[in-house]
Design a protein around this nucleic acid. Structure first.
Length: 502
RNA sequence: GCGCCUCUAGCUCAACGGCAGAGCAACGGACUCUUAAUCCGCAGGUUCUGGGUUCGAAUCCCAGGGGGCGCACCA
């Protein structure tokens, strides 16, 4: 009878409770407009708990505290009432008594699970020993007009969880912990890089050409300029322009956008750390990768040993290193090398059950063998080196003449997934131009992800890029790893979803 | 894009060809130490939508929609 006061009630979870589409003033309580504008003297729940975890039952501390948060459980017991108040730091029990608490009857009759409250009173422990706040007074900060789902099971429908994350955060506590861990990881990365004299910068998200990675971009349009712009697929080329401009150590933590499929590991927008450091190379990047990954694990879990989906990974440096060809050889139980040529490699690939497209170069086939047979099987952190030059258009050729055809590039893989990708950056404008031309040719042969030609970037290189190491780390996947998340949507507060349908 | 699974009360789920139900939430009440409190009472439905089969459809079939998983895609 009482549902559907508002027009917005078609959506699950939308039934308005207790006639709450109306202001409470009609029941003699406060109206929305009479809610407080500020709440003074609020202590965090964690702060109140601090140092009081093992008080004996029925302790009166004599200390008064005020906490604020959302009421998530309510146990009415005649002239007593107990509630669980939750804030971002934790949960604490509040105890109200008809003798001690102002407005006790209003509390019992008007409050529902989900209301925001401030509660002030003495910090005590109950007969059963639970740390509680025995309320002298309480104050309503906001009412909920909608219910929070089953109090034991919460909500489990994934669509509902992601669309209404503000509910998910309250009823599924691990969601809150994950997002807090994500923040801690990003914060730690910033401070580690700051200590190493990196400067945080911001480069364009709207770009006239989307380059720097192999991916399909989103297209948008600027009306006044009457021109199409792309949402960036990578900040790489702009960051290296800044190195050309004289900033020796720069990094950016920001969103990239790729117009591709959505999967447990892919969201159309995702957060990438990219950093560039002059006067070093891929080996300098390896040290930095080890440091950043280990620090991320420490920030999230307090340990460099992390449990992930039933596996245990040791993220303490140093990480193993091996070359792509060596790893593929082990997987095939047969020595392979780029020098075998495309035909023989393609035959091996077919024998291994793959179906390499025609006209691929040897490097492409080795890469395919690696991605299909090796990468998913790699467990503990490992730097995979010796990437074919042909799949590394922005990386510098290997300095060792015996490594001809390979680039100075590595990917860091943990648990079968790529966590970081780094190069000794290609600095030679003529070679860069040639690589872009090859990418354009690939695109013409049907590789829709081949990189776009960026003329100005070549011009920037013509002004001189010093020897530079560069690296990208996928923040979402890193956070997944250190928070034991199976799905990228679990580490993104608001993942991309289809629009809610009426 | 293809395949498989799924959609029932606000939430979590039963009923699987024969009167659409439970727990929680909500609402009314009892209870001075609860912990998913308990107890009594009340209310809550276009069974995703449309069509078909049938005496009879939440249930079977077809189409559409939402969601999930896998494949493809994603260096």
């Amino acid at each position: 009878m009482r549902k559907s006061v508002a027009s917005s009630s078609a959506w699950p979870g939308s039934v308005l409770v207790r006639g709450r589409g109306m202001s409470e003033g009609e029941g003699g309580g406060v109206t929305a407009m009479e809610m407080p504008y500020e709440v003074d003297g609020v202590n965090s729940v964690a702060g109140v708990r601090q140092g009081r975890e093992s008080l004996p039952p029925e302790t009166s501390t004599g200390v008064t505290a005020k906490v604020a948060g959302r009421l998530m459980l309510l146990r009415r017991q005649g002239k007593l009432a107990f509630g669980d108040l939750v804030d971002s730091s934790g949960r604490i029990q509040v105890m109200l008594s008809s003798r001690k608490t102002e407005g006790f009857d209003r509390f019992v009759h008007e409050r529902v699970i989900g209301d925001w409250l401030a509660v002030e009173g003495e910090v005590i422990t109950t007969k059963s020993g639970e740390l509680s706040i025995l309320a002298d007074r309480w104050e309503l900060l906001a009412r909920t007009q909608r219910s929070f789902g089953d109090k034991w099971k919460g909500i489990s429908d994934p669509d509902l969880r992601f669309r209404q994350r503000y509910v998910d955060l309250w009823v599924n506590p691990e969601v809150r912990r994950r997002l807090q861990s994500r923040s801690a990881v990003v914060s730690r990365i910033r401070s580690v890089l700051a200590e190493k004299d990196f400067m945080e910068v911001e480069t364009p998200i709207l770009q006239p050409i989307a380059s720097g990675a192999a991916a399909r971009p989103f297209v948008t349009h600027h009306n006044a300029l009457d021109m199409d712009l792309y949402l960036r697929i990578a900040p790489e080329l702009y960051l290296k322009r800044l190195v050309v401009g004289g900033f020796e150590r720069v990094f950016e933590i920001g969103r990239d956008f790729r117009n591709e499929g959505i999967s447990p590991r892919h969201n159309p927008e995702f957060t990438m750390l990219e950093l560039y450091q002059a006067y070093t190379d891929m080996y300098g990047m390896m040290e930095l990768a080890e440091l950043l990954v280990a620090e991320a694990a420490l920030a999230a879990t307090g340990s460099t040993s992390v449990a992930y989906q039933g596996e245990q990974f040791d993220l303490a440096p140093p990480f193993k290193r091996d070359s792509m060809e060596s790893l593929v050889s082990k997987a095939l139980d047969q020595e392979i090398a780029l020098e075998m040529g495309a035909e023989r490699l393609a035959a091996l690939a077919r024998k291994a059950g793959l179906d390499p497209a025609p006209h691929l170069e040897a490097g492409h086939i080795v890469m395919e063998l690696y991605e299909e047979l090796v990468e998913p099987e790699l467990r503990d952190p490992i730097f995979v080196t010796g990437f074919p030059q042909v799949v590394s258009p922005l990386a510098r050729r290997h300095r060792d003449p015996e490594m001809a055809g390979r680039a100075e590039r590595f990917e860091l893989v943990v648990g079968g997934r790529e966590l970081a990708n780094a190069f000794s950056e290609l600095t030679d404008p003529a070679i860069q131009r040639q690589h872009f031309e090859e990418q354009v040719a690939e695109r013409e042969q049907g590789n829709a992800e081949a990189m776009a030609f960026d003329q100005d970037y070549v011009r920037a290189l013509e002004y001189g890029l010093p020897p530079t190491g560069g690296m990208g780390i996928g923040i979402d996947r890193l956070v997944m790893l250190v928070t034991d998340a199976a799905h990228i949507k679990e580490v993104i507060a608001f993942p991309t979803l289809r629009p809610e349908q009426s």
